[in-house]
């Protein structure tokens, strides 16, 4: 696959052309909140934002999604039928996150129509991170600030230009159809290489996590859980903001003789998540609920997907109201092995 170059000033033209066939989503700031939203004609993405407060998963998997409408006559299904979606400027961690969360919505036996309607035919342009943040730890899980997993094109900001590195033929063809690119020169590639080295080395050495799953599997009743969860508030900040958390609830919202069935984000951190019809709740304490979150990400998902359920985006680290840092937890667990 070749690498292409475009002048920064020409990016808006590229995005305009992309908008002809795609609904283009990019990071924006609106009313004090940073998130991914569909670009209005002429609107510039806010690339200065490294990590949006709200995760881009909501583009493919909205927090509230109508599945169908109903009234006395019957049901009308509702499914996204807009233009295919192009996400421009997600970060490599979030791009990788799509691959992980997707394994739940699409597996060999079952395909979720709501996810697929938005996700099929979509394009992910990931923007490499020249300056990872203190809360970033994508490199703990095999990712990295220039990682291409989950993206169709990796975009690198080299100062005056953007380099576009497609990861598949479809994406390369699209770039050539839209046009406006030059082939990147050796000097460009070298520059990108330097930026990549600098970004990667700024992140420091990740701890060894090989033993984490095994340690966790043997720690179900460990007093460690009480200690770790003592300050946890049991809110939904960490899971709602997480690019790999997928849990949902289904509710009917009715008004007089009509209504909608909606699918909405839910979280294992809420007591109601596991409360049974009888009133019994198998996960009564916040300790057991936090344990579920960490066990799911660092043991169960390793079992089912063969990889950790965390991409190290650090959203939960910065947004958690009590600064319960998943990295502290992992370091504690990793250190258990040496005891």
């Amino acid at each position: 696959m070749s690498v292409y170059r475009i002048k920064k000033d020409d990016l808006s033209l590229f995005l305009e052309k992309l908008r002809e066939d795609f609904a283009v989503y990019a990071p924006v700031e609106s009313d004090g909140i940073t998130s991914f939203a569909e670009l209005e004609p002429g609107q510039e993405p806010a690339f200065g934002i490294l990590k949006t407060q709200k995760p881009p998963k909501e583009v493919f998997y909205p927090q509230n999604e109508i599945m169908f409408r109903f009234n006395e006559e019957g049901m009308t299904p509702e499914l996204y039928d807009g233009k295919p979606i192009a996400l421009f400027g997600v970060r490599p961690c979030d791009a990788k996150g799509f691959n992980i969360i997707e394994r739940v919505f699409i597996d060999p036996k079952y395909e979720d129509p709501y996810w697929s309607a938005r996700r099929k035919g979509s394009l992910v342009f990931a923007l490499a991170c020249n300056e990872p943040l203190l809360s970033c730890f994508c490199n703990w899980f095999g990712g990295g600030p220039f990682d291409k997993t989950g993206s169709d094109v990796l975009v690198i900001d080299t100062g005056e230009d953007y380099l576009f590195e497609p990861t598949n033929e479809g994406a390369e063809k699209l770039l050539s159809n839209i046009g406006g690119f030059e082939k990147a020169e050796k000097a460009d590639i070298e520059k990108a290489g330097k930026l990549r080295k600098k970004a990667e080395s700024s992140m420091g050495e990740p701890p060894k996590l090989d033993s984490v799953k095994e340690t966790l599997d043997n720690s179900w009743n460990s007093p460690l859980w009480d200690r770790i969860s003592a300050k946890c508030l049991g809110c939904a900040v960490c899971t709602f903001s997480c690019p790999t958390c997928y849990c949902f609830d289904i509710q009917d919202e009715t008004r007089r003789d009509k209504g909608t069935r909606v699918r909405l984000w839910d979280t294992c951190q809420f007591p109601l998540f596991t409360k049974e019809g009888s009133g019994h709740n198998p996960r009564k304490s916040q300790t057991s609920r936090l344990r579920q979150r960490f066990m799911h990400k660092f043991s169960y998902m390793v079992e089912t997907l063969n990889e950790f359920g965390c991409v190290g985006c650090g959203r939960c680290v910065t947004l958690c109201p009590v600064n319960l840092d998943v990295r502290d937890f992992l370091e504690k667990i990793a250190a258990e092995k040496d005891k």
Partner: peptide, 16 residues
Amino acid sequence: EKEYGKCIRCYACRNA
């Protein structure tokens, strides 16, 4: 409307 419209009901405010 504008402020509460943004709420994602994570209930962090209540829980804190």
